[in-house]
């Protein structure tokens, strides 16, 4: 049976631990579940492969595996606690789309105010928060992966198991709807300034 020695993955583990941990916490999991999932993920990685070179894109492999593992965990704990979920709710996608219990995604913005005035920084922070609040959980997740983790849209589509087009369009489609009300007003204001 192939296996990777701990010493060969120690630096990889160290490198990705923080970002994987942050990802799990943003997805609404507690520290313990996050750390368990990360442990199992690396354990499996080491026991299923003979070398890290076998994995083409390690970063997205790790993010995708962690995400799947967490979703499975969420599903099993819900089944376990006996909450009423439909029998067919087996796919990961359904867990995410289950409106009664969606997979949340939170982001906390900070604005560096050494470069700009404090009041400006606060105003910008507020505006970013407005934008984030208007977005869906999945869109915030795309921001985490793209803006913070610098994943490409191709990688994001693989991590979140959606099409590349969808990873981009996640963006516009729902916003159009959500924004409809405020947009006319905003445009009006822009013309005046």
């Amino acid at each position: 049976m192939p296996s990777i020695k701990f010493s060969h993955i120690a630096s990889t583990y160290n490198k990705y631990l923080d970002s994987l941990y942050a990802y799990a916490l943003h997805l609404g999991f507690d520290e313990e579940s996050a750390m368990d999932a990360i442990h199992d993920l690396f354990y499996k990685l080491c026991t299923k492969h003979a070398s890290l070179d076998e994995i083409q894109n390690l970063k997205f492999y790790l993010f995708r595996s962690l995400r799947n593992r967490l979703i499975d965990h969420k599903r099993s704990t819900r089944e376990f606690t006996g909450s009423s979920i439909p029998i067919h709710a087996h796919s990961r996608l359904q867990v995410e789309n289950d409106s009664a219990n969606p997979l949340p995604f939170h982001l906390n913005v900070t604005v560096e105010d050494e470069l700009i005035q404090k009041e400006d920084a606060e105003e910008i922070r507020q505006k970013v928060e407005n934008v984030l609040n208007r977005l869906t959980d999945r869109q915030r997740e795309v921001i985490y992966l793209h803006y913070i983790q610098e994943c490409s849209y191709e990688e994001i589509s693989k991590i979140m198991q959606i099409s590349v087009a969808a990873s981009r369009n996640l963006v516009s489609k729902s916003i159009v709807k959500l924004r409809a009300a405020s947009l006319t007003m905003a445009l009006f204001l822009l013309v005046i300034t």
Binding site: A22, M35, N108
Partner: peptide
Amino acid sequence: DIIQFSLPVLPQEK
């Protein structure tokens, strides 16, 4: 430079 996100950090001991 200006817009950053605060990310949960795992303590070194953990």
